[in-house]
Design a protein around this nucleic acid. Structure first.
Lengths: 104, 104
DNA sequence: AGAAAACATAAGCCGATACTTATGAGTCGC
DNA sequence: GCGACTCATAAGTATCGGCTTATGTTTTCT
């Protein structure tokens, strides 16, 4: 299931760290691994999980592989969350402000 | 960490099933267990995880315990997701429509 | 061609975790 | 008080998941 892959992918703190680092700009796998205290294969495996969850997409660039956030995965979370909009408390109108600021 | 508890709680499909069932209306633990194919202790343990993640809150009612969705947890997810609003694709303006419809 | 670099895959280990059965702790009705 | 009921906790087990080291694959550079 799609939602299952997404939430399982985000359940791991190392994977969230990778994702959040990637959200600040696309980069290749080795650059992603810097600062995170795990081996290169671990990074590769994490990226595989994030890719299967559609949170990340890759593009070969010579011998590098460029990774970037996949908007599809983010949209899937937003879609899931929208089902529970009835429970968003009033103070979350900060989020509404954010969305308004996105308007053209 | 708070986010960690939330995403770990949602990573399990049985727990998401419980949460989604609860989102359609509060109920007690035994009613929650019906239909889900696991034992009563398993339901109780899942509810404990969801409660620790602030996705669910409980209230004693005699010998029953009434459970309901905790808006705080939902808000925490929304807050996390808001950090990646730059990646919400255009078609997610459906969500913006939803939020406008929440306006007074 | 050959070495080096970037990344992926394989295999194995170990701790986390979701489940079970058994039992405990409160609460209600007779 | 006592049995029935609701729910939580304890303890044990088996699978899952993230990590490691070792190795394979592809590309680049000389």
């Amino acid at each position: 299931m799609v939602e299952n892959d997404i939430f399982r992918a985000l359940a791991d703190p190392t994977r969230r760290l990778i994702f959040e680092k990637l959200a600040s700009g696309g980069m290749n796998a080795s650059a992603l691994g810097e600062g995170i205290g795990v081996s290169q294969p671990a990074i590769s495996q994490h990226l595989g999980v994030l890719r299967d969850a559609r949170l990340v997409r890759e593009e070969r660039r010579g011998r590098f592989v460029h990774y970037e956030v996949d908007p599809d995965g983010v949209a899937l979370i937003a879609g899931w969350l929208a089902k529970y909009r009835a429970y968003w408390p009033a103070r979350m109108d900060a989020l509404r402000g954010v969305l308004k600021e996105m308007d053209p």
